[in-house]
Amino acid sequence: MAAPDGAPQKTFLVFGGTGQTGQHFVRQALGQGHRVRALARNPDKFAFAHADLEVIRGSITEHPDLDALLGGVDFVVSMLGDAEAQRERRINDGFVRQLVPAMRRQGVSRFLYQAGGLSAPPDRALSPVLRLVRSTVARGYDGQHRDNEAVMRYLTEDAADIEWMVHRAGIGSDGPSKGVLRRSQKAISIATFQDCAAYNLRTVMDADAVHTCDVSSYRAPGPRGASAG
């Protein structure tokens, strides 16, 4: 079966599909003719039904059957985040360390992980401006950023055989689209949830994005562009 644009229909396994970016991602993937399987603690948060949407009740903290979830899947997308819980422990890091071996067992190679723009990639530091923001107005999310950083280190050091990519998103609001986000190492934009979702959907299918931990921007980075570190 093919999507409306003639591309082959793909199956996405989505974690965090009931979140602010996740809801848009699921709708967009279905709208492009793909199938979506989503793990959700509360499936009722999906305010819509679709023939190609399969919602399985569960949580990453409740030891789901990852091998069963991954059966027949082409792409895995994680848009998980719980700032309060991540103050206490690295929930996402622990989960990804279980997910990657299951992906290997099931022969699934492509994985997109959404982090935050204030989470530093393993190979470079944040810019002074972003370090200041993280230590002041965003200090309540430091546990979340440390969890994201642990995930990026694990993927970089121990999962070279997996076609992973990390979107260090600058997420701002659920307003209307402000344009198309482009991948960048330095220029970061505060984007709407739907634009981040559209970026994730494009990027997980982009082989050029494999093994990158980039931010995204509405503008092509220029010589005086904003620095993301």
Rank of each mutant, 00 (worst) to 15 (best):
Asp65Ala: 14
Lys178His: 13
His34Lys: 04
Ser59Gln: 10
Gly19Ser: 08
Met103Tyr: 02
Ala83Lys: 03
Asp82Val: 10
Asp206Phe: 03
Asp142Pro: 02
Ala187Ile: 04
Gln32Ile: 02
Thr203Ile: 08
Arg89Glu: 13
Pro122Ser: 09
Ser109Arg: 09
Asp5His: 03
Arg182Gln: 15
Ala29Thr: 01
Ala169Arg: 04
Arg153Ile: 01
Leu130Arg: 11
Arg124Val: 06
Leu13Cys: 08
Ser109Pro: 00
Asp52His: 15
Pro122Ala: 08
Val151Asn: 07
Gln185Lys: 14
Met205Lys: 13
Lys186Val: 13
Val108Met: 06
Ser109Ile: 00
Asp123Glu: 13
Arg139Val: 04
Val55Asn: 12
His145Trp: 14
Arg110Gly: 10
Arg146Thr: 09
Gln86Lys: 06
Ser177Met: 10
Phe25Arg: 03
Arg219Ala: 15
Asp123Asn: 14
Ala138Ile: 00
Ala159Thr: 01
Asn200Arg: 02
His145Ser: 13
Thr21Arg: 01
Ala47His: 06
Ser135Glu: 12
Leu132His: 01
Arg183Val: 08
Glu84His: 11
Pro122Asn: 09
Ala120Trp: 03
Met165Gly: 07
Lys186Leu: 13
Leu70Lys: 08
Tyr199Val: 00
Asp5Cys: 05
Tyr218Met: 07
Phe193Arg: 15
Val76Pro: 08
His34Gly: 05
Ala3Arg: 03
Phe111Thr: 11
Ala191Gln: 05
Leu39Thr: 06
Gln9Cys: 11
Ala228Phe: 14
Thr136Gln: 07
Glu163Val: 00
Asp52Arg: 15
Ser227Pro: 02
Val215Glu: 07
Phe193Glu: 13
Val137Cys: 06
Ile190Ala: 15
Ile171Ala: 15
Thr61Met: 11
Ser135Leu: 05
Ala228Gly: 15
Pro223Ser: 08
Arg97Ser: 08
Arg124Thr: 12
Leu53Arg: 10
Gln144Gly: 15
Thr21Trp: 01
Arg35Cys: 04
Gly222Cys: 04
Arg89Cys: 02
Gly179Phe: 11
Ala40Arg: 02
Val129Cys: 05
Tyr141Ile: 00
Ala47Glu: 13
Gln114Cys: 13
Pro121Met: 07
Arg37Pro: 01
Asp82Met: 05
Gly94Met: 00
Ala83Glu: 05
Gln98Leu: 09
Lys10Cys: 05
Pro176Gln: 11
Val55Trp: 14
Ala150Arg: 03
Ala2His: 13
Leu118Ile: 12
Thr21Ser: 07
Leu80Phe: 01
Ile60Arg: 07
Gln106Lys: 13
Glu88Cys: 01
Phe193Met: 10
Gln23His: 03
Ala49Arg: 14
Ser184Pro: 06
Ala102Asn: 05
Phe25Val: 04
Gly107Glu: 12
Arg37Lys: 12
Leu132Gln: 11
Glu62Phe: 04
Ser177Ile: 10
Val36Glu: 11
Asp5Arg: 01
Arg131Glu: 14
Glu149Val: 07
Glu84Met: 05
Asp174Pro: 00
Val26Cys: 07
Thr156Ala: 15
Pro101Thr: 10
Asp123Arg: 01
Cys196Asp: 11
Glu62Pro: 05
Gly225Glu: 14
Arg87Cys: 04
Gly179Met: 12
Asp5Phe: 01
Thr203Trp: 08
His145Glu: 14
Pro128Tyr: 00
Leu13Met: 12
Ala138His: 04
Asp206Thr: 05
Gly33Arg: 00
